[in-house]
């Protein structure tokens, strides 16, 4: 039996901009149906990574494969399986909403399945000029354009920053619902970590062009802990980063260690992604 084709495989990716190495030997693989959060401080290389994996930027070294095809020679069939939501929708201000939707749809095969939930969610006036849309409305249009043709891999770069709370809440509810329903893989970059905590089953934290933590939600909840003091060597855990309160973040925690820590007077806390992210991105 042949191995399933992975939606995304990045191996040893390097991208440099004149004097700065934005991505440094970056490796990431996403399996079908995974919803992964891409986190990192400003300048960590998230946007560069997204630019490379969509083929907008050419990598200096390494390889990116989307559904088994090299990103530099994607067939239209594979390209049609990818949806991208940028930070802001730019260009096409000379179109009306309906005109742009119709125009771009014209490049899809007639039998391309559609998902109308996004059009309903966006509630945009088809006669409105794109030029006259607010930032949030433009972003809703960008989401509709990326998702309505049922992509199998969705890449979202800060998709909700300009959405109002209601639209953001609804989008964050619809996105995992859609992904689970269609088995779509999602890579979402956002600074609103509380949103991601609720929908992602994997967290990839970047810093200076490299991954500093790549854990699944299950591992995060089961094996990552905040300790009020340094762990004992015999516990066999790995210190991830110092915490702001003088404690440390560790990985490799086992349920049996709770009592040992208690005996040593070390307080153990379940992680929350935001404080872990703050510790790792310092």
């Amino acid at each position: 039996m042949s191995e399933p084709v992975l939606p995304l495989e990045i191996t040893h990716l390097v991208k440099e901009f004149s004097t700065k190495r934005a991505l440094n030997d970056f490796n990431l693989t996403l399996a079908q149906g995974e919803i992964a959060a891409l986190l990192g401080p400003n300048g960590a290389g998230k946007t560069t990574l997204i630019g490379c994996l969509l083929g907008f930027l050419s990598a200096d070294a390494g390889q990116i494969r989307l559904f088994g095809e090299d990103v530099n020679s994607l067939t239209p069939q594979v390209r049609n399986r990818i949806g991208f939501v940028p930070q802001t929708l730019t260009g096409f201000t000379w179109f009306r909403v309906g005109e742009l939707l119709t125009y771009l749809a014209g490049y899809r095969p007639a039998d391309t399945p559609q998902d109308d939930r996004w059009l309903e969610w966006a509630a945009l006036d088809p006669t409105a000029r794109i030029k006259s849309l607010s930032g949030g409305e433009r972003q809703r249009l960008a989401i509709v354009l990326a998702l309505r043709f049922r992509p199998d891999l969705i890449v979202l770069d800060e998709p909700v920053a300009s959405l109002d709370p209601q639209a953001r809440h609804d989008f964050m509810r619809l996105l995992p619902e859609y992904a689970h329903q269609h088995g779509a893989t999602v890579l979402i970059s956002s600074h609103i970590i509380s949103d991601l905590e609720n929908i992602c089953d994997r967290f990839v934290i970047m810093r200076r062009g490299q991954i500093v933590l790549d854990v699944s939600e299950a591992v995060l909840q089961g094996q990552v802990r905040h300790l009020s003091a340094l762990p004992r060597p015999e516990w066999g855990v790995h210190v991830l980063a110092p915490a702001e309160d003088g404690g440390v973040w560790v990985s490799g925690w086992q349920p049996g260690l709770d009592d040992a820590a208690l005996g040593q007077g070390v307080a153990v806390q379940q992680p929350d992604v935001e404080t872990l992210f703050l510790a790792l991105s310092r």
């Binding site: 969509l54 083929g55 907008f56 239209p76 390209r79 049609n80 990818i82 991208f84 940028p86 929708l89 730019t90 260009g91 096409f92 000379w94 771009l104 490049y107 354009l145 990326a146």
Partner: peptide
Amino acid sequence: WRQVRSPLASMTPGMIEA
């Protein structure tokens, strides 16, 4: 040029050629 320079054009197979 304004049609083909958008990232949307790159993401839409066949659009730039058309």
